[in-house]
Amino acid sequence: MPVIHTSVTTDLAPAEALRILTDFGPGRAAAFPNVDQSTLIVHEVGDTWADVTEGNKLGWERERYDWDPAAGTITAVTTESNLWAAGSRWDYRIAAADGGGSTVQVRLERHAKGVMGHLVGALIPLLGARTVRSGLVSALSAH
């Protein structure tokens, strides 16, 4: 079970960073490099939750997003995927940074499913933190 931790500091206020990460509108695929428009399906969205399928040609996952603006937290738990078992997850914690802006901490936990999931999962300790950090910088910069 690969788990990675990484963080990004941005000039955005914590509320704005949270808004961007929970924006499931038409710009999501353009903002997140690992999300193809062809796999993005927004099933339902509530005030502090969403049921979304997203990914790319290699892998996709349906996730239940839940967020708490007051706490600055977002969780995305996998409910279905071609690579990852249910219970795989993303956890974000957004906090005000010293001097302004915010720090976004990310924890990614993967439970592989199938041969391809195990192969991709083996790369996560090697490339995962850099890939996640790069995607997060891209998303926060796109808005």
Results as ranks from 00 to 15, higher is better:
47 D>G: 14
80 E>L: 12
25 G>I: 06
39 T>Q: 09
51 D>R: 15
57 K>T: 14
119 L>Y: 05
105 Q>V: 02
79 T>C: 09
139 A>P: 02
92 Y>W: 13
140 L>V: 06
34 N>Y: 10
70 A>Y: 04
45 V>S: 05
68 D>F: 12
125 P>Q: 10
85 A>N: 07
48 T>H: 15
113 K>S: 13
18 L>W: 01
74 I>S: 03
82 N>R: 11
120 V>E: 10
121 G>H: 03
33 P>W: 01
124 I>V: 15
15 A>V: 12
99 G>K: 06
53 T>I: 09
25 G>E: 01
136 L>E: 10
120 V>I: 15
55 G>E: 10
68 D>S: 12
44 E>Y: 04
57 K>D: 15
117 G>M: 08
122 A>L: 13
89 R>V: 07
71 A>H: 11
40 L>N: 05
135 G>K: 01
19 R>W: 02
88 S>N: 08
132 V>N: 05
27 G>Y: 00
138 S>A: 15
94 I>S: 03
85 A>W: 00
17 A>Y: 04
14 P>Y: 02
107 R>E: 15
4 I>C: 05
121 G>E: 07
103 T>R: 11
48 T>L: 05
133 R>P: 00
13 A>I: 02
27 G>P: 00
51 D>A: 13
85 A>T: 11
90 W>N: 09
16 E>A: 14
67 W>I: 08
100 G>S: 03
9 T>R: 15
68 D>Q: 11
135 G>C: 09
73 T>S: 13
135 G>N: 14
50 A>R: 11
43 H>T: 13
109 E>N: 01
131 T>Y: 03
143 H>M: 05
60 W>F: 14
4 I>Q: 02
3 V>M: 02
127 L>R: 05
90 W>K: 00
137 V>N: 10
54 E>K: 12
74 I>T: 02
139 A>W: 03
130 R>S: 14
34 N>I: 04
108 L>N: 01
4 I>T: 03
60 W>D: 08
33 P>C: 08
80 E>P: 00
92 Y>P: 08
52 V>K: 11
28 R>G: 00
5 H>D: 07
30 A>Y: 00
32 F>L: 13
58 L>Y: 07
85 A>C: 03
25 G>H: 04
86 A>I: 12
43 H>S: 09
130 R>K: 13
108 L>W: 03
110 R>D: 07
58 L>S: 10
133 R>E: 15
99 G>H: 05
15 A>E: 13
78 T>G: 08
17 A>S: 12
119 L>K: 00
18 L>E: 01
99 G>C: 01
135 G>M: 06
128 G>C: 07
54 E>S: 15
97 A>D: 06
42 V>E: 00
60 W>K: 11
66 D>P: 00
60 W>Y: 14
86 A>M: 06
108 L>Y: 10
125 P>E: 09
124 I>Y: 01
68 D>T: 03
106 V>W: 01
